[in-house]
Amino acid sequence: MSYLELSYITKSFPTPKGPYVVLKDVALKIKRGEFVALLGHSGCGKSTLLNMVAGLSRATTGGVILEGKEVYEPGPDRMVVFQNYSLLPWLTAYENVLLGINAALSGTEAEKKEIADRYIALVGLTANAHKKPGELSGGMKQRVALARALSIRPKVLLLDEPFGALDALTREEMQDEVLKLWEADRTTVLMITHEIDEAILLADRIVLMTNGPEATIGLILDVNFPRPRSRADILEDPAYYTLRNQVMTFLYERAGDPALVD
């Protein structure tokens, strides 16, 4: 029984020359508590797909089903962490987190504040809780966005290239952070990325997209490293290289376009 289902999603945009089909018949079943990474070249429609799961846009045909109900509109049960953080610059880190909690959770004022404090602490930002986003580094901003998303305990966490805007060192740090947080509470995650190692480190399954137009799922690979994982352990495992090669081969040969972004 699947928890989140992408049911034959096709998305096309009208153009003067007729409809432009971005995604065609994307079908995927995700189990509860599963971490799925969606990997593909830039422009293959990954973000379009994620937006549809979030409810920010609608599929032309097909749809998204969560716990047996079709998704029609955005909602806090499918919280998104955007690549550009999307924090409100006039609120402090703490207030940004609290805004989500106030909107999505019920409870007393004190309970809500306690939750905000807890999640700010969980992402290691207690010392910077009362700074505005403008005073925080990229990594810290993404921590705030993560805390905002996790604090309302969504059914599905949607990560849209969450570390794409970070420098390489901070990115690794954040990947380890997410790994630790996820292994602690096992929220169902759909993550978009174009970084192979990120997908291997974090995901239970890697879903590879073919190139657009008419992009669809080309290959699904299971990632069977035991949890809790660590970057070092994975790098020592020969299976890592086999898996990495499979992904590379798909991206370079079967997906067609050799210009891998990044």
Binding site: L56, P74, G75, P76, M79, V80, F82, S86, L88
Partner: peptide, 16 residues
């Protein structure tokens, strides 16, 4: 659009 997206994902009330 980013702020609007945040608002719609969080289903913020009109006043908020």
């Amino acid at each position: 659009q980013d702020y609007r997206n945040v608002a719609s994902v969080l289903k913020l009330s009109r006043a908020t």
